[in-house]
Each structure stands twice: as structure tokens, then as C-alpha cells.
Design a protein around this nucleic acid. Structure first.
Lengths: 187, 187
DNA sequence: TTAATAGTGAACATATTGTTCTCTTTTATT
DNA sequence: AATAAAAGAGAACAATATGTTCACTATTAA
């Protein structure tokens, strides 16, 4: 509603994000956050009940954007356009990550990256699930749908973690090729 | 050295384990641990510098056992015996988990399971890495070795997480079949 | 039996959390 | 431009958690 609220919220998000790039989530204190955000203690607690809530809000904000943008792109391209690699939804996601809007990479490469990847995977699972159902692409009758969904989203997230820990030497396109190589054979 | 030390250590491990089955890691206090372990505050800090160190020690202890037992079994069976499913190293691991020695399942199904699975994955990666190198099984020339190792260990861990969250309705053998279905095609 | 080792429990300084209060600033609206 | 409503600042607070120190007791290995 108020412009100030959004500004304050953004300041807290940014301060929190930059702190996460420096140290482990669990060691960050509310005091550090409000100091860096130049925000009063009262204000912080008016916006977020706890540090965990802040984390949750940040993740929803961040991955919400990325996933919904991927969802839009899926409408035109499908979950996995068999022909040309660059159009796949996964390549799209990787490119998005590399662009590093809102310092997503900072979060995903910090000591507490698992927390974020967990949120990322949950969002991703929803996306893949819905695409599976919409497209009826699951020709594999031997494996349960939810196992496959979990396998795909899980593998993707693990790959991203591997990519970032290895200092992102591969391009999104290369990585997409890797991923297609291990996922397409089972679809 | 001292029998008492081992006893105390075991008591702390057990208390910590049972607490983890009840609540999130970050919300467990040292006070709760020492109360349940019937151990003095000083004693706790004589054994472990911080709660994080305790966690680390517990994981090393736990997964060390499981992995080294799997390593032994690999010597006779190989990473992936193509013929009969039940002998695969992964099935062996899953059976081990289901037997629930030292309440591994409690840890893996608690709110903070990601932390443990991360340790699990690291141990697993070492195992798979070494088996890959020893057996020279990587016929896939298009994908880097470390990507494959990460994909396999990552997928396995994600599967275990999925299994446990779904209340472990599948048997280790079924799960092993699922896993073979998504991994063997890419080897 | 005894010296060394391990554990107890209380007390402590320090740090963090989340709340409450009063006061100031900004915004939306007229 | 004036003003009421909303939002933030900042100090103070109780409650809780951490990690250390101390003097004392119990156990073990020899």
C-alpha cells in the first residue's frame, strides 16, 4: 500500500541477501539485518515475525519470479521441445539464473544454499507436475508420476548446485545438454 | 580412551537424535540436549565445541558406517551388477536405511533432513567416484565424470528424501528398480 | 591405593530475541 | 497547503541461550 513499506521491505531483502553472501544463514542476526538495512528494530518485526519468515518471503519472491517466467515460456515451447535445445524450459531457467536478477546466485552459492535450493525444488516440482499432466508426456508406465517429477526436479536442482559450486564454468546451453542427456532417455 | 567418555558421547548422540525426531535442528538448545542426556553442561562442551560440531560428528559416525558397509559389499558385487537387482550397491544402501540402525530414519525424516542428506550425498559421491574410477564403467564420453557422479548421488539422495516423505511405502527392492530405471539408461 | 582423568553443577558475562513504549516522519487525501 | 492516518525510529525491557570458569566429586587405569 504505502510506498515506504515496499521500500523498507526491499531494503531488508537486500541487506539480508548481501549478508547471506557473506555468512551462513543461521549465524546472521536480526541486529545485523536491521543495521545494514538502516531500519528500526520495530519496523523489522512489523514486517516479518521471525528470521525464518523473512527467508520464506525472500524465496517466494525470488523463485516465484523465475518460475512464473518459465511457466509463460512453457506455453509456447512446451516442457521439452525435442528439436532445438535452447528453447527448453530448463535452459530458460538456467539463463535466468545466470542473469542473476536480484542476486539469486549470491543466495545459491552461499553457505546455506541448500535452504534455497529446497524452495527452488518445490516450485520446480509444481511446474513440472503441471506440465506433465497438461502434456500427458509420461510414456513411462513403469514409474510412478510423482517419482519422475521428483527425479527431474531433484536432478535439476542438484545440477544447479554442482554448477555453482564449480564456479559455473559451463554455459546454460551446455548444462542444458547435460541435463537432456540424463533426462530424455527416461521419458 | 575412557569408557566413560564413550558412554557420555553415546548418551549425547542419542539424546540429540531423539530431539531431532521431535523438532527442527535450529530450535534445539544445548540445554535440552544435556538435560535429556543427563550430562553436565561442562561435559557437553568438553566433548563438542558447538552444536554444529555435534551434528557433524553424528553424521560422520552414522553415514560412515553405512557407506563403509556399502563399500565392502561393492568389492564383491560391483557398483551395479547388471543381472540381479537386489545385489546393487543402492539396494544395499536402501536396505540399510530401512533397518534403521541408530535411528537414521528419525534423522532423515525430521524437519532438518536436508542437512543430513547433504552429508549423506557427500559420502555417497566419494563412494561412486571411486567406483567409477576403479571400474572404468563410464562409457558415456559426452558427459563429464564429475557431472555424472553428482547426478547419480544427487538423484539417489533426492529419491531417499522422496521415499521418506511419502512414508516409505515402497520396499528397498522396488525403489532400487525405480533408480535403475532412471540411471542405467545413461551409463 | 592412588594419581590422573572425567564429570558435576552453580555462577557468570555476553549476546540474541521479541515486545512495548513514546516520539518523529512520511504519505494520501482533502 | 493542512491534516489525519499510517509507518518508522530508537530506547528500554524481560526472557532466553551461549560458552566459560570455578571448586568439587566420582571413576578409572596402573
Amino acid at each position: 500500500m504505502d510506498r515506504r513499506q515496499q521500500k523498507t521491505r526491499a531494503a531488508i531483502f537486500q541487506a539480508f541477501g548481501s549478508l547471506l553472501a557473506e555468512q551462513c544463514y543461521s549465524h546472521i542476526t536480526v541486529q545485523e539485518i536491521i543495521d545494514r538495512a538502516n531500519v528500526g528494530r520495530t519496523t523489522f518485526y512489523a514486517h516479518f515475525e521471525t528470521k525464518d519468515e523473512l527467508l520464506k518471503a525472500l524465496c517466494e519472491n525470488l523463485f516465484g519470479h523465475i518460475i512464473s517466467s518459465a511457466k509463460d515460456c512453457t506455453h509456447t515451447h512446451g516442457l521439452y521441445s525435442a528439436g532445438s535445445a535452447p528453447e527448453s524450459i530448463f535452459c530458460h531457467l538456467l539463463q535466468h539464473l545466470q542473469e542473476n536478477d536480484n542476486n539469486v546466485l549470491g543466495l545459491l552459492s552461499c553457505e546455506s544454499s541448500e535452504i534455497f535450493l529446497r524452495y527452488f525444488k518445490d516450485s520446480l516440482s509444481d511446474l513440472i507436475q503441471s506440465q506433465f499432466i497438461i502434456q500427458n508426456r509420461h510414456t513411462n508406465r513403469d514409474l510412478p508420476d510423482d517419482f519422475l517429477v521428483n527425479h527431474i526436479s531433484g536432478s535439476f536442482v542438484e545440477m544447479v548446485l554442482w554448477w555453482i559450486k564449480g564456479r559455473m564454468k559451463q554455459t546454460p546451453e551446455e548444462l542444458d545438454r547435460y541435463f537432456r542427456s540424463v533426462i530424455e532417455p527416461i521419458l
